[in-house]
Design a binder for these strands. Structure first.
Length: 424
RNA sequence: GGAAGGGUGCCGGAGUGGACUAACGGGACGGCCUGGAGAGCCGUGCCUCCUUUGUGGGGCUCGUGGGUUCGAAUCCCACCCCUUCCGCCA
C-alpha cells in the first residue's frame, strides 16, 4: 500500500509508476474519493464534537427540564450523523479497495520496460562448462540415475509433482545445510516456518490483488498455502514495533512452497522445473528505510556467493518495471546456465519491497531522531529453490558416462562425491 | 469436535453505563541536577486521523464490525484471534 498523502501530493508520479508497471488503477478516482472522504470526515467530526460537548453538559446539568431539552436536540444531531456516516463508510470502503490495488512504485533506478523481454542483463559470472560430448537433459540423467520419479508422482498427486529419490534427497539436505551455514554466519536467524497463512496476512504481503490464481486456498479452514517462505516471514512481525537499533533483522527460513501454476498449462509440464510444490530456503530482512537499497545489494551478493561457491555459472538480471510484481520496488533475478537447453533459467530472485508490505501489515520501528513510529522496509531473496538448483547442479556437473559430480562445497555434508549408475 | 476463560496505549496491568480526560507500574521522550554519567525529582497531547500552522482546535482510540443509549472499555448481537482442560492424533 502507498501512503495516501504521498498519492495526493504525487499524483503524476504514481500514475507513471502504475503505467510503467503495466497496472491499471484509477488514480484520479482515488484522489476524488480522498477529497470527498476528508470533507465528510471534517463534517462528521464537527457533529461528534457537538455531541461530546452536550454529553458533558447533560452529565452536569441538574434541571430535568433542561436535560430533556438538550437530549431532544441531540437526537436530531444523531440522525444527521447516522446519515452522514453511512455515506462516509461507502466512500471510505471504495477508497480502501482502490488503495489496495495500487502497486508499489518502482525505484528511480529501475529500467523502464513493458515485460520480461526488457529486463537488463547486468553480468555473467563463472565459466560455462565445456563438454567433449553433447550435454544431456537433467531429467534424462536423473531418471537414469533414479533420482527423480515423475510417473509415480503423477499417479499419486497429478501432473507437476515429483518424487526426489536417493542421492537427490541427500543433495537437497546438503544444499539446505550449506545455505544455513553460510547465512547463519552472516547473522541471519534460522527458521522453519508454517506453510499456511491467513488471508489477511497474504493480502498484507501484497500477493492477493493480482496473483490470487497462483495461490492454493483451503476453503474449509480459510487458509492459503504459501508460495514462498517470504510470505510467512514477512507476516511474522505484523503489527509489531522494533527499536531502531535492532534493524536490520535478518532471517533465513526453510519451508515448502506451493504454486498453482495457473496459466502455464503446457509449459514445462514434465519434470521438476515447474512444479506445484518444492522446498526453498529464503532470506528475509526487516530493514531501516535508509538502508534498504544497501540491504538489497547485500542480498544479491549473498545469492551470488552461494552460486559462486557451488561453481554454477549464472547471470544477474535487473528486472524492468513491467516485470515487477505488486510489492516490489526493485528486483534482481539470478539465472543459472543450463547446458542442455543452452540458456539461462531463473533460480533466484531478490526484491526490495520498501515500505509497501510494512504499511499493509503495520510493521514499524521507533525513529530515534523524531521519536516517531515509522514503517520498516522489507526485503526478500532466494537462497535456494531446491528443485531448480538440483537441476542446475545435475546439468552443469554431468560427466560423459552419465554420472554427476558433487560440487565440492557440498561434499562435507555428504558421504559421496559422485552420483553414478550402479546396480541397485 | 466438546467445555471454560480471555483480547485494554510503546510494554505490563486495573477498570462492569456519565468524575475514564483509561488508574497504577515500567519504558520512552523533554527538563532540573551533574565536570560528565547514574540515581533522584518534575513534566509529557507517547497510537492515529482531520483541520490549522505562531500555535492551536477537534475527532478517533480498550480484537473487528454492527446495535441499544442523550452518553459504551463497560450492556446486546455477529465475526476474528489467543489460552487452558477434555477427546482425537504425528
Amino acid at each position: 500500500m502507498l501512503d495516501i498523502k504521498f498519492i495526493r501530493e504525487n499524483k503524476e508520479l504514481v500514475k507513471k509508476g502504475c503505467r510503467n508497471k503495466g497496472v491499471e488503477v484509477d488514480i484520479d478516482r482515488i484522489i476524488e474519493l480522498d477529497k470527498k472522504r476528508r470533507e465528510m470526515l471534517t463534517e462528521l467530526e464537527k457533529l461528534r464534537a457537538e455531541k461530546n460537548k452536550a454529553s458533558k453538559i447533560i452529565a452536569s446539568v441538574k434541571s430535568q427540564q433542561e436535560k430533556k431539552k438538550i437530549i431532544s436536540e441531540m437526537k436530531k444531531i444523531d440522525k444527521k450523523e447516522d446519515a452522514l456516516k453511512e455515506k462516509f463508510n461507502k466512500i471510505d470502503k471504495e477508497l480502501n479497495e482502490l488503495l489496495l490495488q495500487v502497486p508499489n512504485l518502482p525505484l528511480e533506478s529501475v529500467p523502464v520496460g513493458k515485460d520480461e523481454s526488457e529486463n537488463v542483463v547486468l553480468r555473467e559470472v563463472g565459466k560455462k562448462p565445456e563438454f567433449n560430448f553433447p550435454p544431456r537433459d537433467y531429467l534424462e540423467l536423473a531418471q537414469e540415475l533414479d533420482l527423480i520419479d515423475i510417473k509415480r508422482a503423477a499417479k499419486v498427486a497429478g501432473t507437476r509433482f515429483g518424487f526426489l529419490k536417493k542421492e537427490a534427497v541427500l543433495l537437497e539436505f546438503a544444499l539446505i545445510n550449506f545455505a544455513f551455514d553460510q547465512l547463519i554466519q552472516e547473522g541471519f536467524i534460522p527458521l522453519v516456518t508454517p506453510v499456511m497463512i491467513k488471508p489477511e496476512m497474504m493480502r498484507g504481503m501484497g500477493y492477493v490483488e493480482r496473483g490470487r490464481d497462483e495461490i492454493y486456498y483451503i476453503e474449509k479452514d480459510n487458509l492459503y498455502l504459501a508460495g514462498t517462505t517470504e510470505q510467512i516471514i514477512g507476516a511474522m512481525h505484523a503489527g509489531e514495533i522494533f527499536e531502531e537499533k535492532q534493524l536490520p533483522i535478518r532471517y533465513v527460513g526453510f519451508s515448502t512452497w506451493f504454486r498453482r501454476e495457473a496459466g502455464s498449462y503446457g509449459r514445462e509440464t514434465w519434470g521438476i522445473f515447474r512444479v506445484h510444490q518444492f522446498d526453498g530456503v529464503e532470506m528475509f530482512s526487516f530493514a531501516h528505510p535508509e538502508k534498504s537499497v544497501y540491504e538489497h545489494q547485500f542480498f544479491l551478493s549473498l545469492e551470488e556467493r552461494l552460486m559462486k561457491l557451488l561453481k554454477i555459472p549464472y547471470r544477474v538480471v535487473e528486472i524492468c518495471t513491467g516485470d515487477l510484481g505488486d510489492p516490489a520496488a526493485a528486483k534482481y533475478d539470478i539465472e543459472a546456465w543450463m547446458p542442455s537447453q543452452g540458456r539461462w533459467r531463473e533460480t533466484h530472485s531478490t526484491s526490495n519491497c520498501t515500505d509497501f508490505q510494512a504499511r499493509r501489515l503495520n510493521i514499524r520501528y521507533k525513529d530515534k531522531k523524531s521519536n516517531k513510529l515509522k514503517f520498516v522496509h522489507t526485503l526478500n531473496g532466494t537462497a535456494f529453490a531446491i528443485g531448480r538448483t538440483l537441476i542446475a547442479i545435475i546439468e552443469n556437473y554431468q560427466q560423459k558416462d552419465g554420472s554427476i559430480k558433487v560440487p565440492s562445497v557440498l561434499r562435507k555434508y555428504l558421504n559421496f562425491s559422485v552420483i553414478k549408475k550402479r546396480k541397485r
